[in-house]
């Protein structure tokens, strides 16, 4: 019974975070800021919803699968967003930054 309500609470919080992420995704001004907004949905919202589902299941096998999904997403999410940011940077898209570290010192070729 306690587990049931805990799971419901996780689902509610996760849904709210998903909405927040989507709102930030639509509102933020440039690609880098939007990646941050997506990060919200990718880390905490995903964990909350998967944990909620984990609490809902009785059998062990689905729980293990949910844990695997969580693990994959936690590994792939940051790597994908880094690849995206790097590709955008190399493609010449610059963020609207107020304090800037300037250009990279070394030659960009070879990496």
């Amino acid at each position: 019974m306690v587990l049931h309500w805990l799971s419901e609470a996780c689902l509610l919080a996760g849904s709210f975070l998903l909405l927040t992420g989507a709102l930030g995704f639509l509102r933020f001004p440039d690609i880098y800021a939007r990646i941050h907004a997506c990060g919200v949905t990718e880390t905490l919202a995903t964990s909350l919803i998967l944990v909620a589902l984990l609490l809902k299941s009785e059998a062990a096998l689905p729980q293990v699968k949910l844990l695997f999904i969580l693990l994959f997403l936690m590994f792939s999410g940051p790597t994908a967003s880094h690849a995206l940011a790097k590709a955008a940077w190399q493609g010449g898209v610059r963020p609207r930054a107020t304090r800037d570290a300037g250009e990279r010192p070394a030659s960009p070729a070879g990496r």
Partner: peptide, 15 residues
């Protein structure tokens, strides 16, 4: 641009 599209596709995929 293409990066926005890929970001949207990534969001779509995880969802």
């Amino acid at each position: 641009n293409v990066y926005d599209r890929v970001l949207a596709a990534n969001l779509f995929g995880t969802k």
